[in-house]
Design a protein around this nucleic acid. Structure first.
Lengths: 201, 201
DNA sequence: TGTTACATGGACTAAATAGTCCAAGTTCGG
DNA sequence: CCGAACTTGGACTATTTAGTCCATGTAACA
């Protein structure tokens, strides 16, 4: 029987488990991460795993949520500036930098997880889709602000622009990942910039 | 000890195995496809599996190659017309249709496989990257033909355009897959069209 | 007719892994 | 200091799976 922790100590342990699983899975993938691996990394006994999670699937769902949080938190400030051209440039540069800095480009953790879990558990897919939706929402809000300030052409649709931006970025991240070439992310960033600039008033 | 088939019959059997594995993995993923599943689907004894493939990894590599072939063959004719605006529109429509027609959008099989194998086996990653490279090459050749006919602006770069196109398409496929929404592919197709049109002379 | 490649099918090993269970110890707030 | 929540750690089961091995049988061709 799985429980929800009732004390700060319990919550910390549960959090440690999710964190460990998220780290391991981000690096090695779902298939190559066993519960024993998680147990070791989190410095927790196996009983604790099953105290807080009914089964592996449940933990995997938490990992999906945690991965989304990680990705969104990592770009929160930069995303907040996605409402001016220079802010957009800064945001895109930050995304490119992330791929450049890593020893090897890893793409988008949300997308990578989706490839492994989306067709296996519907609930997990929804969590990941929600993560992407929140990302897109951040982009959309910035673009809407620009539109309200009259900086976009009258026929430009901020919602569509946000959707296009997310698609282009995801495409760039995927190619950077598969090709092990962060330059692919630079190209995607430039493409986004061109699409946005074409919508400027 | 694994062998390469020496007769037509042997080659057919080997091909049947790869085909079965490719089908199963495309549908269920690498982690959820066992060699016994492949054995059943291919109507082959286990001994045959190990007669033609040294181990599971080797079969997985063949599956990667086979998946690339499948994806590229499926768009060969349409891709051949990627050298006029109407041809490009037809090509994009065909890609969109593929996602619309499927009961549920599956995205790009190459990308999906990459998410599962790219970080596990370098040789497999290279095979998948090569598949994407050939795809991009098809796009590039069409755009180069347009450039040579003077249909593109002097400052337009067909190579860059092809790269951008592939990225946008992959982004659209990924979003269509995760969101179970073929409309995402339509948006990506329209985005590609806008980018290409912006490069017209 | 004999040889070679192809094929069956099941027995078998070895390892990994999910999940269960329990008995005993620790932490800490009320 | 009592009790509830937390924690350990390992034993245990059951299942799946990759990979090996072998005896037997068939297709086809020189």
């Amino acid at each position: 029987m799985s429980t929800t922790p009732r004390t700060a100590r319990g919550r910390a342990t549960r959090e440690r488990i999710v964190r460990a699983a998220t780290d391991l899975i981000t690096q090695a993938g779902v298939a190559d991460t066993s519960l024993d691996d998680v147990r070791d990394r989190a410095q927790v006994s196996k009983s604790q795993l099953y105290l807080y999670f009914p089964d592996r699937e449940a933990l995997l769902r938490e990992v999906a949520g945690s991965t989304c949080e990680m990705v969104l938190e990592g770009q929160e400030e930069a995303l907040h500036g996605f409402d001016t051209i220079t802010g957009i440039e800064r945001y895109l540069d930050a995304l490119v930098d992330l791929q450049v800095t890593q020893e090897t480009p890893t793409g988008c953790p949300i997308a990578t997880l989706a490839g492994q879990l989306a067709d296996r558990d519907e609930r997990t897919r929804l969590i990941l889709a929600d993560g992407l939706a929140r990302w897109e929402q951040g982009l959309r809000e910035g673009l809407k602000a620009m539109a309200q300030r009259g900086e976009l052409r009258a026929d430009a649709d901020p919602c569509l622009l946000a959707n296009q931006t997310l698609a282009i970025l995801q495409g760039g991240l995927l190619l950077a990942h598969v090709r092990r070439d962060p330059g692919q992310m630079r190209i995607a960033a430039d493409t986004v910039l061109a699409v946005v600039k074409a919508a400027l008033a």
